[in-house]
Design a protein around this nucleic acid. Structure first.
Length: 613
RNA sequence: GGUUCCGUAGCUCAGCUGGAUAGAGCAACAGAUUUCUAAUCUGUCGGUCACAGGUUCGAAUCCUGUCGGAAUCACCA
């Protein structure tokens, strides 16, 4: 629904008639007039100046005059320097609002019959989810919603890193120190339970390592290295090598990994048990955040994939083999490096897995596009992956997109697990809901509701604060997360926008039964009403832009501006006791439409609206 | 060192397909409701858009360079 197409065509006709210049209507850009000038939309005439060799103001006046005389939609014009400000007749706004009221699923595109996979979350099984995961999850989920709104068929997926040495560390620690404990027996959420054993392993390992450094053995390693660094500095860097070459715990963990790879029944059973605990814990957190997945891939299934593709690529000469048997691709002609795809011993690397997983997904879903929600530290990896898929000639290669996002930092700097500054996902969710509870208690607005309903409202408010705080920032920018600010509920926040929606619902509840929603007789908009109609008209474009850019912050910032202007309207203009029945009808419809836009825009951000607060 | 990303008010962020006097929120201060939910509204204070060139009628926005910050450059994932 393009409301301005007639206006653009009118300007085009004016230019054609007056100057015999052909401009298609999409070449004519109309900007919203800045509020310090009178007018609704502005046409910039500077580009015509050179061609016509006339003064900008004269051109503006001529076009404006022509429009007044020949087009009924134009009520007035004013030329300021090279800016032609056009004021539209009030009827234009009324008609637009009626059209919107009659539209099905306003703001949403009709199905395009294109399928897109959106991958997000993708956690490891040895640590509970933290703030970084929350940003990932919210971005992925929101983009999935936005793509749906843009007419795509969307499949939400994740890939879980459930194998490797890390999970063996947790398993080993549980065997050593667990005494058969379970999440049930200890009442600890499964992912935290397993994470605790991972930490326990690290602690035991560090103790072992420090002991080693004190003993003759450690002394000998330090001297044998011939290092010029202090002993302390040397051992700081030596940690990995110690793990692999000297550590008893390291040897045990590696032994376990070997047993896992050989399919040892006991090891696999423990692995499955511990992973299940983690998944149960993750599910609780996903549920709290309100996200679901249509499919899940596990690295334990996919880590051997990709070798077939490597064979095919070798046959086609896309890849090449070195003498030692390792397989590579040379991307230097496009400014990238040579990249290893298969080790000399024939085992696969991360890239191989990703190639294989992409193929697997194509076999499973036949998608046209795929979005990977992964942090920006992997920008290069995905650049390489996409180039490889292109060279392999995959049909979906052009549709691959890395939704890259910046790191989440605290005001003190990066989160560090060693320093215990990692913000846990479950903790921050609980905190922000608690804050909502405190603030709500002060207001006393929902006291009379049943407890379960109150809890539901507080959950929605708290999560809105958290989610909006994160999703309002452009994905690619790194963001500073101040826990104190994230629980704010005033100003540019989720609850502020919810409050606008709640006010609208309140108005609708109080509206007289059987109100005539025909506003015949109301024919002059005030400035507060007009700006709201303009916002409503912009909604489809905002959704489209967010879809093209895969940027939820576009929608987040839009909802804020809409809510802000609604609050002002609400403050300045009487709705239920308006000056006339027609005015009242119009304002209720206008409010209702704003409510629609806020509700659906928030839904695209994965944020729920309460009816009261 | 190579490559990529970022740098806008004290803080957190918008604005970036070039348009008018660069916007919000927070913080600080001063106000507003006998009337639809004050999680609201109004006002004051706050800027060398990192810096320097270039393109243009016009640059926070595009180009080049410099400075500062981050990421990445494994037969790790």
């Amino acid at each position: 629904m393009d409301f301005l197409v007639n206006i653009r065509e009118a300007v085009g006709s004016a230019i054609k008639t007056l100057y015999d210049i052909d401009l298609s209507s999409d070449q004519i850009v109309l900007n919203e007039t800045r509020k310090e000038f009178s007018g609704d939309y502005t046409y910039v005439v500077f580009p015509l100046v050179k061609q016509l060799k006339k003064k900008p103001t004269d051109i503006g006046d001529e076009i404006g005059q022509w429009l007044i005389e020949n087009r009924t939609q134009i009520a007035a014009y004013e030329t300021v320097q090279g800016f032609l400000n056009l004021t539209l007749v009030d009827d234009f706004w009324f008609k637009s609002l009626i059209d919107i009221g009659h539209a099905d699923h306003y703001g949403y595109s009709s199905p395009m019959h294109k399928k897109v996979l959106v991958e997000f979350a993708s956690p490891n099984t040895n640590k509970p989810l933290h703030l970084g995961h929350i940003r990932n999850i919210l971005l992925g989920w929101s983009c999935s919603k936005i793509l749906k709104a843009n007419g795509y068929e969307v499949v939400n997926t994740q890939i879980i890193n459930d194998r490797g040495i890390a999970i063996c560390k947790s398993m080993l620690a549980w065997k050593k120190f667990g005494n058969g404990a379970t999440p049930e027996s200890t009442c600890i959420k499964g992912d935290h339970f397993v994470g605790d054993y991972y930490v326990a392993f690290e602690k035991a390992f560090v103790a072992e390592y420090e002991d080693f450094q004190q003993r003759d053995e450690g002394e000998a390693v330090y001297h044998a290295s011939g290092s010029t660094e202090t002993k302390e500095a040397f051992f700081k860097k030596y940690k990995n090598q110690y793990f692999n070459e000297h550590s008893a715990l390291g040897a045990e963990a590696r032994q376990m990994l070997m047993l896992w790879e050989q399919g040892d029944a006991e090891t696999l059973a423990l692995w499955k048990q511990m992973n299940q605990w983690v998944y149960d814990g993750f599910d609780v957190t996903f549920d709290k955040l309100g996200v679901t997945f249509d499919s899940t891939y596990y690295e334990s299934d996919t880590y051997l994939l990709g070798k077939k593709v490597i064979e095919m690529g070798l046959d086609r000469g896309v890849f090449y083999k070195k003498e030692d048997g390792s397989v590579w691709i040379d991307l230097e002609d496009v400014g990238m490096d040579q990249k290893l795809l298969l080790r000399s011993d024939g085992t696969s690397v991360y890239m191989t897995q990703d190639i294989g997983t992409a193929q697997q997904r194509f076999e499973d879903y036949g998608m046209d596009k795929m979005v990977y929600t992964v942090g920006d530290e992997q920008d290069y990896h995905f650049k390489v992956l996409f180039e490889i898929m292109k060279r392999l000639g995959e049909s979906y290669a052009e549709g691959l997109y890395h939704l890259s996002y910046g790191m989440v930092e605290l005001p003190e700097g990066r989160m560090k697990s060693r320093e215990g500054t990692v913000v846990d996902a479950d903790d921050i969710v609980a905190e922000v809901i608690e804050e909502a509870r405190l603030l709500s208690a002060e207001r006393g607005e929902i006291e009379s509701l049943p407890k379960s309903e109150q809890d539901d409202i507080l959950r929605k408010i708290g999560l809105a604060a958290l989610k909006f705080f994160i999703v309002k920032v452009q994905p690619k920018k790194k963001m500073i997360f101040d826990p104190k600010e994230s629980v704010d509920m005033q100003g540019q926040t989720g609850p502020y926008i919810q409050n606008a929606y709640v006010r609208i619902q309140s108005v609708k509840r109080k509206m007289a039964v059987g109100l005539n929603l025909d506003w015949n007789g109301y024919n002059t908009l005030n400035e507060y009403e007009k700006i709201l109609v303009k916002h409503i008209m912009n909604f489809p474009d905002i959704v489209k832009e967010a879809g093209e850019q895969l940027d939820p912050s576009t929608i987040a910032n839009y909802t804020y501006v809409v809510a802000k202007d609604y609050h002002r309207f609400y403050h300045e203009v009487r709705i239920l006791n308006a000056e006339s029945e027609a005015a009242k009808s119009f304002r209720v419809v206008l409010s209702d439409t704003i409510g629609y836009v806020l509700l659906h825009a928030f839904d695209m951000l994965g944020i729920e609206m309460p009816e009261r607060m």
